[in-house]
Amino acid sequence: MNDISSSIPQNSFQKSFDWHNKTCYIPTTIQRKQRYNSPRIHIRKNEEIRAGEVRVIDDTGENKGVMTAEEALKMAKAAGLDLVETAAQATPPIVKITSFDKYRYETEKRLKKERIDQKQKGQEMKQIQISVREAKNDLEIKAKRANEFLERGDKVMVVMRMRGRERANKGFAREKLLEFLQTYITIEHKALSEPRFAGRGMNITIVKK
């Protein structure tokens, strides 16, 4: 008799088929942990609120004044909503009658945006100017500055100045610009765009990876 267990995927079942013990494959459910794009923050709600008295803001934004947490919770339940602690450090703590899921989502979204804005504000644009026929020593000095800018998180625009007949040979200027990045920029970086000709030279903007 053929063993039917060979035709059934082993990783989908908990037990294998055993003719002597008369056991068969038992399907199991694989539960996967839910992943979130941003960390969850802890916000007290309803019975979790510890303060005896609270200042209540209703779902329309109106200040209902100070009352006991128990009274505030009754108001929230009567409205079919939650009582959410929005300012635990205030005296008394401030609570809001609202949907807890909605409030948590909006709070996490706001905090994420603030982190992004703060990061972008700290990033400045710096510029390094080089020329096609610049001496090696000068290039090393300018590259050192560029590396310092990149290390602290700034964007760096490297400008290859082109004069007179040099402007007619854009291919050579592009080659020298990329050579400068590959030879002298020691911080691991990436270009935000391809080298482009603008004004009196060619430039490229790089940032730290």
Rank of each mutant, 00 (worst) to 15 (best):
V54A: 01
Q129A: 13
F197E: 14
A78C: 02
R174V: 10
A78W: 01
W19P: 10
A78P: 00
Q129M: 13
Q127Y: 09
N2W: 06
M202Y: 08
E166R: 01
E148C: 00
R104L: 15
Y184M: 06
D101M: 15
K74I: 09
E148K: 04
K208A: 10
G171H: 02
P195Q: 00
I141M: 11
R104Y: 10
K142R: 11
K74S: 07
A173D: 03
Q34W: 07
M1E: 10
E48R: 03
D18G: 04
V158L: 10
Y103V: 07
R133E: 11
K144C: 04
K190C: 02
S99H: 12
Q10K: 14
E71H: 00
T186P: 00
R50S: 11
R200H: 14
E179C: 05
R145E: 11
E124I: 11
W19V: 13
R167T: 09
V158Q: 00
R44C: 08
T186F: 11
E148Q: 08
R104M: 15
E85K: 03
F13C: 02
Q14K: 12
D138G: 08
Y105A: 15
A79V: 03
T86Y: 06
T186L: 15
I187Q: 14
I41D: 04
E53A: 02
V158P: 02
H189N: 14
E106L: 15
G122C: 08
F197W: 13
A51L: 00
